[in-house]
Simulated assay, not measured.
Amino acid sequence: MVLVADDDPGSLLVAKAAVERSGHDCLTAGNGDEAWAMYLEHQPDVVVTDWMMPGLDGLALCRAIRARAADLYTYIVLLTSQGSRNDVLAGLEAGADDYVTKPLDPFVLHARLLVARRVTTLHADLAHYRKVLSQQARTDPLTGLNNRLKLNEDLEQLHARSQRYQEEYCLAMCDVDNFKSYNDIYGHQAGDLALRAVGAVLAKAARSSDGVYRYGGEEFLLVLPKQSQQGAKDMLKRALHAVRTLDIIHSGAPTGHLTISAGISAFTPGLHAEADSVLGEADAALYAAKSAGRNRVELAPERRG
């Protein structure tokens, strides 16, 4: 889509016709303020703008567009009857990609739009690849769950929001019981398969609003917004049962099957200044579950009762 801004009705019609003959949808604006409003609403791929206009002039419009953070790039062509070198440089420094002198030659504008299509397509591809790389950087390659980087980002946001709105949340630290001996007996390939299976169980047990992360090694963390401690405990008990029903044989475990343990902590508004303290309590609760014989859920000691 191309947005053309010009306060001269004749020039606007010529530009609109040239844009449409080039195969683009065209929006038109009769001044800079109208052009800015239409830009914000429609996010066009290309803006063709006159230099001298009421309201925002062409340079101000260029600067406004460039100052706005956006995933996709807008290609800007400046229309000007002022073709001096200083004017051209001023336009490019303001954020324009190219310029066309008036009176407008439709062929010249068509050529500029061909260049614009190549540039905007390239930027769209780059934006897509950046998004893919960002997702990969935040995903554990073994289990497909979120990783520690994503956890740090999500937990920081959740903690700040929960403090602001005085909302509770819970963290559940989970660990595969006797995993070292499982790897020793069955090999690391089997261990990887077991971790994938456990991760899938935890992801299935979680609500759509919950976050499930591979914390490291055989540890997983569940982030449970607006969840009570008892609600978290009930959910983790179901998850532990689901892991047992996987029926993964583990001759080195007392139960003869692969199991997990979990420790749960709860954020209390006004008590926990940092998310790390909630995380530390979940880790302590997990240690208590391990010490109590594994294959169980424990609440953080200071939250019992």
Rank of each mutant, 00 (worst) to 15 (best):
L27M: 09
N86C: 01
G263A: 11
G144M: 11
A35Y: 00
R244H: 14
Y129I: 08
G305A: 12
D276H: 12
F267Q: 07
T139F: 10
A96C: 06
D8H: 09
V46A: 05
L78H: 03
M235E: 02
T101E: 12
D97P: 01
L113V: 07
M1V: 06
T121Q: 15
A67H: 10
R294I: 03
V100M: 03
R148N: 04
Q163L: 06
A288V: 12
H257E: 11
S277L: 13
K16D: 02
G256F: 14
G83L: 11
I264L: 15
A127Q: 05
G211I: 05
A127H: 04
G32K: 06
L92W: 09
E156K: 12
D184M: 10
L113S: 09
V201T: 12
Q229E: 09
D192H: 04
D192S: 11
T80C: 09
R164C: 11
V132M: 14
H241K: 13
A96P: 01
H272A: 07
R112T: 11
A160C: 06
A289S: 15
D154G: 01
P103E: 11
D247R: 13
P9Q: 07
A242Q: 14
G270V: 09
R138K: 14
G305N: 07
R296L: 14
Q135Y: 09
A29M: 04
D25F: 04
G144S: 05
A18Q: 06
L221K: 01
P54A: 07
P106V: 09
N147T: 07
T245F: 05
V48S: 03
H128N: 09
M53I: 01
A300T: 03
S209M: 02
D8S: 12
A203S: 13
N178D: 15
A96N: 08
D105I: 12
N86K: 13
L155H: 01
S209N: 01
H110N: 14
G231S: 05
K233N: 13
E93L: 08
V47R: 04
T101R: 15
L155P: 00
E218M: 03
R207D: 00
G263P: 01
Y182D: 03
C26S: 08
P269T: 13
R21A: 13
H128A: 11
L13T: 12
I65Y: 00
Y75E: 04
L114S: 14
A160I: 02
Q230H: 10
G280M: 09
Q189P: 00
L59C: 07
L171S: 02
I248V: 12
K233M: 14
C62Y: 04
G10Y: 02
G95Y: 07
N178L: 08
R130E: 06
F179N: 08
V88G: 02
T101H: 02
G280W: 02
L236C: 13
S265I: 04
L72Q: 04
G211R: 04
L224T: 07
M53R: 05
D283M: 05
A282E: 10
H128F: 05
D98Q: 13
L3P: 09
I76R: 06
D210G: 04
V212N: 03
A266H: 08
S134D: 15
G91A: 09
K233A: 15
V201W: 08
G252P: 05
D25W: 00
G217I: 12
